[in-house]
């Protein structure tokens, strides 16, 4: 049993005593017989009363996001952005179970409906997948961070073209700017600011 488990990357070991008192940990649940259950991406593990240690493949993640009410970005969009960032940075690897909607809402102090909407958008964008009755997981796409970067690039590119049109720049002007940029290389940063 342990041999098989040891092949897994064990990030977290929870003891029954240690987990019951965790403020953000709804990972353990007690059923009617007093058995403790652990929710993980791979289903339910029972402690059957005697075993007091449970192994998980994925690290228990902190469900608190840093959201701001003074940010003009809508709250659901802030959630989408932050989870996307975590996935792109590799903080949350493919297959990682996401916090439940209620758990994330409670820990980040936003309404349940806002998190629902954010998860729906993340699902549509292919960042996460939601399996009925199992919860949501980081999508298993090998090129996920590439495709997210691609989407970000396209967005900036379109914005640049729109801006160029308003300035009256022709395609040749833009081409010239690109050539200049290449000629100077990284030695001299271009004029203007980068975000």
């Amino acid at each position: 049993m342990l041999d098989e488990r040891s092949r897994l990357c064990v990030h977290a070991v929870f003891t029954v005593a240690g987990c019951g008192g965790r403020r953000h940990g709804s990972c353990l649940r007690r059923n009617a017989d007093g058995c403790l259950f652990l929710h993980s991406g791979r289903g339910l593990y029972s402690t059957k009363g005697a075993v007091h240690t449970v192994y998980m493949k994925y690290a228990q993640i902190d469900p608190e996001l840093f959201l701001s009410t003074s940010d003009s970005t809508p709250m659901y969009q802030q959630i989408v952005n932050q989870i996307t960032t975590k996935v792109m940075a590799g903080d949350w690897p493919a297959g990682q179970p996401l916090p439940s909607i209620r758990e994330l809402a409670s820990a980040s102090r936003v309404s349940v409906i806002t998190v629902k909407r954010a998860y729906a958008e993340l699902g549509q964008a292919g960042v996460i997948v939601t399996r009925h009755g199992m919860g949501s997981f980081v999508a298993d796409s090998p090129n996920l961070s590439d495709s997210l970067l691609q989407a970000e690039f396209t967005q900036h590119f379109d914005a640049m073209l729109a801006c160029a049109r308003r300035l009256g720049l022709s395609v040749d002007d833009i081409r010239q700017l690109l050539d200049d940029e290449q000629a100077h290389g990284a030695a001299e940063p271009t004029r203007g600011s980068t975000p």
Partner: peptide, 23 residues
């Protein structure tokens, strides 16, 4: 919020609080 069987109805002059917490 953590408990899906519990409900809250609250009034506030501070619409920010409502915008943040309400469904």
């Amino acid at each position: 919020l953590r408990d899906e069987a519990r409900s809250v109805l609250f009034s506030s002059h501070n619409t920010k609080d409502i915008e943040q917490m309400a469904d």
